[in-house]
Nucleic acid binder design. Structure first.
Lengths: 132, 132
DNA sequence: GTGAGTGCAAATTTTTTGCACTGCG
DNA sequence: CGCAGTGCAAAAAATTTGCACTCAC
C-alpha cells in the first residue's frame, strides 16, 4: 500500500535520530540543510503516511502538529510557556484514570492528548510569583 | 482597558446562554442568524478579549479553538471520533496528579489541556470491536 | 478629541490538493 | 506498463493584521 521511498526514509531517519518534536516546516528545512531537499507537500504526505504505518508519533498543540520518534513509548508533554521547551513525562496512574473517566461516560477510549502548560525551572526563576 | 461593547456583549450572551463549544465561525453565523451580524475579525478579537478578561474559557483541539462558558467550572473533554460529539468530565484525582507530574519535573503548572478521544456509547455500538 | 473597537479585505500560517511527471516493481 | 509518490504552485482553512472609520466617554 504505502511505499517507503527514499524521501520517506530520510524523514524517518531524521526523526528517529533525534528527540525533537518536529514540525513539517522545520523538518523540511533541516533536510534541505543536509542536502536532502524534499518538497513541503511531500513532507506532509510522508509524515501522514509514516504515522499511518505506526512508524512515528504525533502530537498537536499550539495550533501545529508535531511528529516524534515512536520508539520512546507513550508519554505526555509538559510545555514551558516561557521558553517553549518541551519536557516529556509518563504518569501511569493518570493513564489509568483516563481510561476510567472515559468508561464512566460509556466511551471506548481510543487515544488521548494531555499537555500541561507551565514554567520550566529556568523560566520560573525569572518570573517570580507575586510577593517574591 | 478592554471595553465590553455591544458586539462583545452579544458574543458573551450567546456563549453564556448555551452549553456549546463555539468556534469563531459558527458563533458569527449564529449571531448573524439572530440579526446581530458581527464581522469575523471582531468575533476573533472579541473572543480573545473575553478570554483575557476571564469571562469565557477556551479549548483547542482538532486544529480549531473553541470557546465556552466559564461558569461551568473547570473540566476536561471527551471527544467522540465517530460523531464529533463532546462530553465533559471532571476527575479531581487526574487534576491533582497533573500538578504532581509537573512538580516532579520542576515545572510551575499554569494550565493544562486534556482531551480523551474515543467512541461514544452510540458510535461504539455501531463500530463493534473485532470479534463482534 | 482621543483611543479602543469595528469591519472589510488583504495577509499570514499551516496544511491540502490538482496536475503533470517520475520511477520502482 | 501501472500506480503510488513527487514537486510545484494554487487552494483551503483558521486566524491575524492594516487601515480608515466610528463611537463612547
Amino acid at each position: 500500500m504505502s511505499r517507503l521511498t527514499s524521501q520517506r526514509q530520510a524523514i524517518l531517519d531524521l526523526i528517529r535520530s533525534s528527540d525533537t518534536h518536529w514540525e513539517a516546516e522545520s523538518l523540511a528545512r533541516e533536510l534541505a540543510d543536509r542536502g536532502q531537499s524534499i518538497g513541503i507537500a511531500t513532507v506532509y504526505r510522508g509524515l501522514a503516511a509514516l504515522e499511518e504505518l505506526g512508524l512515528i508519533d504525533s502530537i498537536q498543540f499550539g495550533g501545529k502538529k508535531r511528529y516524534e520518534r515512536i520508539d520512546k513509548g507513550h508519554h505526555d508533554h509538559l510545555v514551558c510557556t516561557g521558553c517553549g521547551s518541551i519536557e516529556e513525562f509518563i504518569h501511569p496512574q493518570i493513564e489509568r484514570l483516563q481510561q476510567a473517566a472515559a468508561e464512566q461516560k460509556g466511551f471506548v477510549m481510543t487515544g488521548h492528548q494531555l499537555v500541561i502548560y507551565g514554567l520550566c525551572p529556568a523560566c520560573a526563576a525569572q518570573h517570580p510569583v507575586a510577593g517574591g
